[in-house]
Design a protein around this nucleic acid. Structure first.
Lengths: 190, 190
DNA sequence: TTCTAACATGTAGCTCTTGACATGTCAACG
DNA sequence: CGTTGACATGTCAAGAGCTACATGTTAGAA
């Protein structure tokens, strides 16, 4: 039930088409809740049927523009207020890291280097977006600025962690008899 | 296809039952890849049928203990080596934050305070685990120490971000005409 | 001895999500 | 005028994942 609320939020901010939504997702909410167009279009149909959004315009090539209704906004508020947040996180890339010990250390290091490059790309994209967008334009933008700041910090931290982990592995932390990670030089971190 | 590899990894480290796995998940891999027992048991059956794990023991109350086979370990390595990582992240709690602008500022602040408490609880649990476990015992443990360190940093950062966001909202960042988040006092942050 | 809580394994039905398929429009370029 | 690429909307089948249901065991406390 998360996708629908993401859509309600975006369409409450400004009218958009399914196509707009699926592209916009990839640079905003998509960072914490990915969605393909094949999921978005049927959801828009359902939301329309339930009266939570309404088609308020059309454009060339069959383009349909939707907007959140009062009922939709109420549903969004009630979701935030009345349903308990799901604090779980799903992140395959970090699951893989758990398994790195099955690779020889040099391969594990190469693996982390690839991850790092990916995260740097991501961070660069975020930094560019922060610089490019006028975040004062409306409430959704202001709210998004708070969220994207978390993205910036998250990827910065992730890169920092990889550098630390790579150091540990290079020092033999994954090999039996090597130094225990987090206990480098006999002193416990943090 | 991620759960099966998580299981292969854990069962390569030490023999465990489905019950052990479902509990262990909640304090290790479950932090990045949650799984219920209702998903684990059928997956164990499939993995057994495919020869990637094998039942190597039994215990009271119908307890079945499994272990990853050579074929399973090979499958795990090949997953790490040959399949492209999925770098996407799913995190409902942060999706909700995108929507906070639909609530009045005081309610948004209360909302973040609840999130913060949850994350502090989580961080405390991680800190306690780091202190309690002997991370040098085997390779899986050493590898896990790297992963849990990321968890520690992640939740620390998350709490720091909430404090920043709350400050912004308190200063009126979500209200039209208020200060634009990230541009506090006219100076752009980091 | 009886009760309770933790141990232990499973199944069934439903929703969510993905990847592939499918179709058509329009603008710009050569 | 034909081609290409972006725009634009959809469907469908298969698999992943969640909630609830279902069953039985064992240790320890009262």
């Amino acid at each position: 039930m998360s996708l629908r609320h993401g859509l309600l939020d975006l369409l409450a901010g400004e009218p958009m088409s399914g196509y707009d939504l699926s592209r916009f997702f990839s640079v905003s909410m998509g960072n914490v809740w990915p969605a393909q167009h094949s999921q978005i279009y049927p959801e828009l149909a359902k939301l329309t049927a339930e009266g939570l959004i309404a088609q308020t315009g059309e454009g060339p090539r069959g383009r349909k523009v939707y907007q959140t209704t009062e009922a939709g906004l109420a549903a969004l508020r009630s979701w935030l207020r009345d349903s308990p947040p799901d604090y779980s996180i799903r992140q395959e890339a970090q699951l893989r890291v758990f398994c790195l010990w099955v690779l020889p250390p040099d391969e594990a290091l190469a693996y982390l280097a690839r991850d790092r490059a990916e995260y740097v790309r991501h961070l660069d994209l975020i930094t560019a977006t922060i610089a490019a967008v006028d975040w004062g334009e409306n409430q959704v933008r202001r709210s998004s600025r708070l969220s994207i700041e978390f993205g910036r910090r998250f990827y910065t931290e992730l890169i920092g962690w990889i550098d630390w982990a790579a150091e540990q592995i290079a020092a033999g932390a994954l090999q039996p008899g090597g130094p225990v990670p987090g206990l480098t030089a006999g002193a416990r971190l943090g």
